[in-house]
């Protein structure tokens, strides 16, 4: 508790490079960039693979590999290989880790839709893309949102770790605090990261309420 007071009460963290609002904005910026790029790649790909049934192997392999890969190792390796300087060396591993949850859930959501629903949709004369967007996508939405949530959580957590290789954001407090044995800073930073993660979690819960049809929500 004292640490929290020390951290949040210190003027050092409210202005300049280490200001909490600035670090928070940085964290959001990196996370959102990586997340948005990952979603732009993974959702269309997942829809395509789920709808056509082609390329399912990629999904399974990428899902397993992503879980096993140590994020810290991947980060330091990629950044060492590409070199520091711009944001991209850090964004690339973040994006790579963010893609699989979205890809897998989008694929599973479309693939796992009730075969009768698919059959009825085609039988009524919906064309391929109409079947996908009017019948399968709305039903797959809860799973796709779950994938997006897991991905966003991964990005926020990994962006914290990425402070170690020079990224800004909330992870800086933890990494810098550990380096200088300033445990109030470490603790305060950690609390901020937890709050951010909870906010992301809540955001997705609300999004789920807004965009998923009640007819689908009740079934699950």
């Amino acid at each position: 508790m004292n640490w929290l007071i020390e951290f949040f009460g210190s003027a050092e963290y409210w202005s300049g490079d280490d200001a909490i609002p600035l670090r928070l904005l940085q964290h959001l910026e990196y996370s959102f960039l990586a997340f948005a790029i990952a979603a732009l790649i993974a959702i269309p790909l997942g829809l395509l693979i789920g709808h056509t049934g082609r390329g399912a192997v990629i999904v399974v392999v990428s899902a397993n590999a992503a879980r096993a890969l140590p994020t810290l190792g991947l980060l330091v390796l990629v950044v060492l290989l590409i070199g520091v300087g711009t944001l991209w060396p850090v964004l690339i591993p973040l994006i790579a880790l963010a893609i699989p949850p979205i890809l897998v859930n989008t694929y599973e959501g479309i693939r796992g839709a009730d075969p009768d629903l698919r059959d009825a949709a085609y039988g009524m004369g919906l064309r391929g893309s109409q079947v996908l967007f009017r019948a399968l996508l709305p039903v797959a939405l809860p799973l796709i949102l779950l994938g997006l949530r897991l991905s966003a959580i991964t990005v926020v957590a990994t962006a914290t770790v990425a402070a170690y290789v020079g990224l800004g954001g909330l992870g800086r407090y933890i990494i810098d605090g550990l380096a200088t044995k300033n445990y109030a800073e470490v603790f305060g930073g950690a609390v901020l990261v937890v709050l951010l993660a909870l906010a992301v979690q809540t955001g997705f819960t609300l999004l789920n309420r807004v965009i998923v049809s009640p007819g689908v929500r009740q079934v699950r």
């Binding site: 009768d116 629903l117 009825a120 949709a121 709305p138 039903v139 049809s213 007819g215």
Partner: peptide, 11 residues
């Protein structure tokens, strides 16, 4: 069809 195949997300 047998299970009706209604769209669960639509009224």
């Amino acid at each position: 069809i047998q299970q009706a195949g209604l769209f669960p997300h639509r009224r």
